[in-house]
């Protein structure tokens, strides 16, 4: 019987596109794990995160990062955060659950989202065309995260640098999502 191997494929084939003033690229090396805070378990989780990751629980709409920059925790809901970290193997949940144990409930979300990085001086002009949020640097600070919709698609937007953002949208509509972002860039150039 021949060996059956399963090779992974990313939602957007690892694209990278350079426009005048905007760089658009697919993020393929990050894992995403949902961490649900048990009812009444906030302080226990907070303590464990401090001990294991030396990082605080992020407020909703904000994120916290470990000092080595390896793990970023996104405040998604009152009782839910996402852990975003570099990891390409198949057991992202255990990386987190091995640290935080029974203080939370974990769900792998790594495969659920197509992730794009958009960066450069024209980024906000392009995003104006599809993002209803106020992305002014003074209003949406570095590390801010929000759920929104862009062209009828659910999108999580995270500001990662002066002029760069991570955009996450459900995997199944990745092509439509890419088209929406590319069209925005082309329309403003």
């Amino acid at each position: 019987m021949p060996e059956l191997n399963l090779t992974a494929s990313s939602p957007l084939g690892g694209l990278e596109m350079q426009y005048a003033g905007v760089l658009l690229s697919e993020i393929t090396d990050l894992a995403l794990v949902s961490i649900a805070i048990p009812l009444g378990g906030r302080s226990a989780l907070e303590r464990e995160m401090a001990v294991r990751f030396n990082v605080g629980l992020p407020a909703c709409g904000q994120s916290t990062v470990t000092t080595d920059g390896m793990y970023q925790f996104l405040g998604m809901q009152i009782d839910q955060l996402f852990a975003l970290f570099e990891y390409s193997c198949n057991d992202a949940v255990s990386i987190i659950s091995n640290e935080l144990g029974k203080t939370a409930y974990y769900t792998d979300q790594t495969d659920s989202w197509a992730m794009l990085r958009i960066a450069g001086p024209m980024t906000r002009m392009a995003l104006e065309r599809i993002c209803p949020l106020d992305l002014h640097p003074d209003r949406f600070s570095q590390g801010s995260v929000a759920r929104t919709t862009m062209e009828h698609l659910a999108v999580i937007i995270l500001r990662t640098d002066q002029d760069s953002f991570t955009l996450m949208s459900p995997r199944s509509s990745a092509s439509s999502f890419l088209h929406a972002v590319e069209t925005s860039i082309e329309n403003v150039l």
Partner: peptide
């Protein structure tokens, strides 16, 4: 709200 229960979609994940 007094139940400890959490939901998240896994439709896309699998």
């Amino acid at each position: 709200p007094g139940l400890d229960v959490h939901l998240i979609s896994a439709t896309e994940q699998w």
